[in-house]
């Protein structure tokens, strides 16, 4: 599925978080979304997943604008995995993965044989089959993250949007997860903090800063020492791995640590916050 956006903007409490983003992700492409904290990656992903109504611009799946689509129609096209909130629930792992079947079930029906087979396949794909009957409470952070991925896969989606899915994972599971995502053959847009991991597995990288998309291209074109210094504010060198992909070797943060008091006071008084427009207050899609 091709995911495109034109002139996408989204405001939170009157503050622009996503500013005029345009992108075009080809079917089957695995794209990494990079940027420092607060650069608008999560908000952009939520706009693309139909969870936020953009204040300007259009999101299209295969050329069709999704603005008026129901949540269910979107859920049958695309799966979204957010950062694990660490929430406890009494659900079992298989139940959580089974939630991925929600868009295909009507109100009166529980899981059927197909649902169970798909859930089993999804658990198998992320290596959690042995934990199917376990309570969510007993899972480690990494197991939860993989269960969320399995839940997304159980949606049989045409596209996957993931917000830092490798957060809680150890090295082996990070590599396995990225291999899994790149190997689905589906359109994948994944926000990542691990730059080397992104360069290793993504066909293309997008770089965000202050809500704008400022670079897009193959890993070697996006991961440059200028971007690392200017955007991520780190001093780093770039090496090339065995596959010809860039790998980042950090020397340290670019700016020396400044006392908190020096950065806490802005040079000029902040302007009064603008009144909250109604359109930004919607939560989810209703």
């Amino acid at each position: 599925m091709r995911i495109t956006a034109e002139g996408l903007s989204w405001l939170a409490s009157g503050t622009p978080v996503v500013r005029g983003v345009g992108l075009d992700i080809a079917p089957g492409e695995t794209v990494g979304l990079l940027g420092p904290n607060g650069s608008g990656k999560s908000s952009l992903l939520r706009c693309l997943a139909g969870l936020r109504v953009p204040d300007a611009g259009t999101v299209r799946y295969d050329g069709l604008p999704v603005r008026d689509w129901s949540a269910r129609r979107i859920a049958r096209r695309i799966a979204f995995v957010e950062q694990d909130s660490g929430l406890d629930t009494d659900l079992r792992v298989a139940d959580v993965v089974g939630l991925g079947r929600t868009p295909f079930r009507d109100r009166l029906h529980g899981p059927d044989a197909t649902d169970r087979a798909v859930v089993a396949a999804a658990l198998d794909r992320v290596g959690l089959t042995a934990l199917a009957g376990r309570s969510w409470r007993g899972l480690s952070g990494g197991e939860r993250q993989r269960a969320h991925i399995a839940r997304a896969l159980a949606q049989q989606p045409y596209g996957l949007l993931l917000d830092e899915p490798t957060n809680h994972l150890d090295v082996r599971h990070r590599l396995e997860l990225m291999e899994l995502l790149a190997g689905t053959g589906q359109t994948v847009l994944v926000a990542l903090h691990d730059l080397t991991l992104a360069a290793r597995y993504c066909d293309r990288l997008l770089l965000m800063h202050h809500g704008r998309l400022i670079a897009s291209g193959p890993p070697a074109a996006v991961l440059t020492t200028e971007h690392l210094a200017g955007i991520f504010e780190v001093d780093a060198e770039l090496a090339t791995d065995a596959l010809g992909r860039p790998a980042v070797c950090y020397r340290g943060p670019l700016r020396p640590a400044v006392p908190a008091s020096a950065t806490a006071t802005p040079p000029e008084p902040a302007p009064a916050p603008a009144p909250r427009p109604v359109s930004t207050l919607r939560e989810g899609t209703s």
């Binding site: 997943a49 139909g50 969870l51 949540a71 269910r72 129609r73 859920a75 957010e82 909130s85 929600t102």
Partner: peptide, 14 residues
């Protein structure tokens, strides 16, 4: 169970 965003991404009109 996992909050509004995950619920909405599952096709639920939250």
């Amino acid at each position: 169970a996992f909050g509004a965003d995950t619920a909405a991404s599952l096709g639920i009109g939250v």
